[in-house]
Structures are given as structure tokens and as C-alpha cells.
Amino acid sequence: MSEKGMNLTLKIWRQKNATSKGKIETYKVADISEHMSFLEMMDVLNEQLINEGQEPIAFDHDCREGICGMCSLHINGEAHGPDRGVTTCQLHMRMFNDGDTIYIEPFRAKAFPVIKDLIIDRTAFDRIQHAGGFVSVNTSGNTQDANALPIPKADADKAFDAATCIGCGACVASCKNASAMLYVSAKVSQFSLLPQGKVEAKDRVLNMVEQMDKEGFGNCTNTGACEVECPKGISLENIARMNSEYLKASITKEA
């Protein structure tokens, strides 16, 4: 194991707040270990900036193990950077080379306005969930026994795969239309594959799609970029399933 100790040039989007105009600033970091995560490299830069009396770069992050969905970043034009199947916090510096210039920008979409620097507002995603991302069951302790309703393993597994969406927004950021179809379809699919979700399936898909449109996300034109960049490998199949659910619901909707 050789320590590379990389020197890098970073071109980073700085923006004071939601209303101000942002621009790309250039920074240098030296002696970056290949074992660092990308965000640890950002920590090094921020420590450097603080020591120079400058404001550190604001970016979202929390769990740093690829599951909370808080981190974002467009790195060299790709959501979550060049590696596949990972979030930015799991991206490691071994993916880069000494002397590289790296462009770091926030996820770009009309529905994801910038709050500061690399931090964006993704509450539009929450509002879509408020519109129907649930099964209407109260907490009681008196629901039926969990094993009273067997669910075919294949359905349960597919529902699980859809449910692993972390709500990071990479799909939106990667889509030329800034469409949120992959995100919305993941939740619609999870519930449409399970008997618990079937009762409200029609209202769910109609309401969630309506909210998605209201938030200003674009339409899906099946380019598939979302699936490629999704850190959790959420499949395009879910979009097909949602389209079919939506069509069914639209046709059979009672007036």
C-alpha cells in the first residue's frame, strides 16, 4: 500500500444565501490520502479555510455511511461523483489522481433551490410524501398478527428494493428534465407490491404525482440517467410500474 498524497485543485460553488448570486471559487488542497472519503477531503479544506480565517464551505452530510441521504454534491458533473452505487460520503479519494481538478457543485433543479454554497432545499420531496407516501393505519397494538398475511417472497423483495431509496435527489440532479419520477415511483412501487398498500393505491399514485408536478419537477423522457446515478440502484422498472398504476387509477377513478 503506497500513500499517494495527492495535490488537488478544487473548483467549488460558493453562494452566500438563497437570494445571492453564486460563483465558482478555486481552492487547493495538498497531501490528500487515497483512503480518505471525499467528505473527509472537504473537512481538510474546511479546516484549512477556518485556520485562514475564511468561511468554510457549507455542505450537507450526516451519517457518512451512505444511508441517511443527507449528502449530495455534483462532482465533475455527476451526482455523488464518479463511482457507482455510492453516495458522496462513501466516495473515496482513490477514485482521483494527483494533480486532478475537481468541480464541486450543488444538485441543480428548480425544485431544489440552493440555501447556501452546496446545501440545497429538498423539502419538495417531503411534501410529495405528505400527499400519499403512507398506509393509513393508526398505532394501536391491535393490528393483525404480522404472519397472518403471508406475502410472496418475490413481492416482498421487490418492495424492499424499491423501499431502499434514501431520498437524496441524485435522480433529479442527473435528469435533464429534473424529473422526480424515480423517487416517487420507488414509494408508489413499494406500496403497490404489498397487500397493505393496495387499498389506497389509486389515491396514492394520483395525489403523489399531482404534488410532484406542483413542486416543479420535470417530466420523464426515459433517458435512464437517474438509474445510472442512483446510489441505491433503484430500478427504472419502478417508473414503469408507477405509470401503469397511474394509468389504471386515472381510468377507473370515480368522479
Binding site: 397494538g141 404480522a146 417472497k153
Partner: peptide
């Protein structure tokens, strides 16, 4: 005592727990 209720509640919410081929948890 309440642990069993939790599983019932979560399944009712649509939490996709791992299942065996027979469809049970």
C-alpha cells in the same frame, strides 16, 4: 411485552421485512 406489537404495527405500515419462501417473516 410490547415487542410483538411492534412487528405487527410495522408490517401493517408496509415495512418490507425479510421473508421466507413461504411468505412468512
Amino acid at each position: 411485552e410490547v415487542s410483538a406489537n411492534i412487528i405487527d404495527q410495522c408490517v401493517a405500515q408496509g415495512v418490507p421485512f425479510a421473508r421466507e419462501y413461504g411468505g412468512l417473516l
